[in-house]
């Protein structure tokens, strides 16, 4: 029997046939939802092999390595209660964690609160850029709900919609988009002027199509302002929720887009890297989640002209949704994304 896990991290035992059946079901779910091509039989067999190897840790073959970008790098250390400064955390990532890229982030990981402390963040960026060699991102979340009541000035669509106030809910989201774009461009400009190589918009579209539109518009404005700036648009999930339902970018309705469609708009907006995200279903098995996530990501890679980095962290990219993601699943997901998904990075 193969020992694997559920999406919530709990152990389960499955036969090899059951593992294969679950991978195929995950692939099928991605195909049905995204209307994309399935993995080939050989690719599915390789995923079965990855899942069924008895070793705790699995890795890529030599030569198949890819680039790793770590979102919210500094937070990963401060979250552990280790009281050290941001430049030092970045040095640890560079020299001890072998990170290919670095990412500075403020503990209130959203553009709106950062707007008020941009000068302080500029210090951190400038100091870090002096003592590190690897490319440096500054990252934050667009977090559109912070612009809605009770946290912001705009009415809350999540309250208006269930009350049947559709036009009001849509208008509120459109108003929030304007505020969010301003903040993203302001913060993005500030950290770039301080010496960062680029900006990472993390968990984009967590609040749906309006948030995706805001991020694309901010990306477009930053690209026009700084032609050499690196801009990563990392998503929040595989599907853009139609919380507004009618918003478009470049003539394309944003609601309902899947990664292979999202990446085309990121390209159009001027992004340098697209971060594809597929959420882990905590009630399904790791093989099911892996088959599904790799299928979505592979389709995205094939559609893209820019590098695609899949998010393979807690609760995404087939990794179980637990605070301490197990190494057996993370290493398998990492390997599968590189060798079957053919990602440019994670």
């Amino acid at each position: 029997m193969i020992v694997t896990r559920m999406g919530d991290g709990s152990f389960i035992k499955m036969s090899e046939e059951e593992v294969k059946a679950d991978i195929e079901a995950g692939v099928e779910d991605a195909v049905k939802r995204g209307k994309i091509e399935p993995l080939t039989a050989a690719e599915i067999d390789y995923l079965v092999d990855i899942c069924c190897r008895p070793q705790k840790f699995v890795s890529v073959q030599q030569g198949n390595e890819l680039i790793l970008t770590y979102d919210s790098g500094t937070l990963k250390i401060t979250r552990l209660g280790i009281p050290i400064g941001m430049p030092q955390i970045m040095q640890i990532y560079e020299r001890a964690f072998a990170a290919d890229t670095l990412e500075l982030a403020y503990v209130h990981y959203s553009f709106k609160p950062i707007k008020m402390i941009v000068p302080e963040e500029q210090y951190a960026v400038a100091e870090t850029s002096l003592v590190t060699t690897a490319p440096l991102f500054y990252g934050a979340m667009p977090n559109l709900p912070l612009y809605t009541q009770p946290d912001g000035p705009c009415p809350n669509a999540a309250e208006l919609l269930p009350a049947g106030k559709i036009a009001e809910a849509r208008a509120a989201q459109e108003e929030a988009v304007e505020y969010a774009v301003k903040d993203m461009v302001f913060v993005g400009s500030g950290v770039y002027e301080a010496g960062a190589d680029g900006i990472d918009f993390d968990t984009t579209a967590a609040a749906g199509d309006a948030e995706f539109q805001a991020t694309l518009l901010a990306c477009e404005q930053l690209r026009a302002k700084y032609p050499d700036m690196a801009i990563e648009i990392g998503m929040a999930g595989e599907f853009v929720l139609g919380f507004h339902g009618q918003l478009e970018y470049d003539g394309v309705r944003l609601a309902g887009l899947y990664p292979h469609q999202q990446v085309k708009l990121a390209e159009k907006a001027g992004a340098s890297i697209f971060g594809a995200v597929v959420n882990t279903n905590s009630s399904r098995t790791f093989p099911w989640n892996l088959g599904r996530a790799v299928t979505f990501c592979k389709a995205c890679v094939e559609a893209a002209k820019i590098p695609v980095h899949a998010n393979v962290g807690m609760g995404v990219g087939a990794v179980p949704l637990v605070m301490t993601p197990p190494i057996d699943c993370v290493s398998r997901a990492s390997t599968a994304m590189a060798e079957v998904g053919k990602l440019d990075g994670l």
Binding site: L68, G313, V330
Partner: peptide
Amino acid sequence: MALTHMHASGMGGIRTAGDLVARMQM
């Protein structure tokens, strides 16, 4: 998480040429 990915599929940052390849992507 960072260390797991680094061992499983990462290029290796400034231990190798990971930072340089990343720069070309960015």
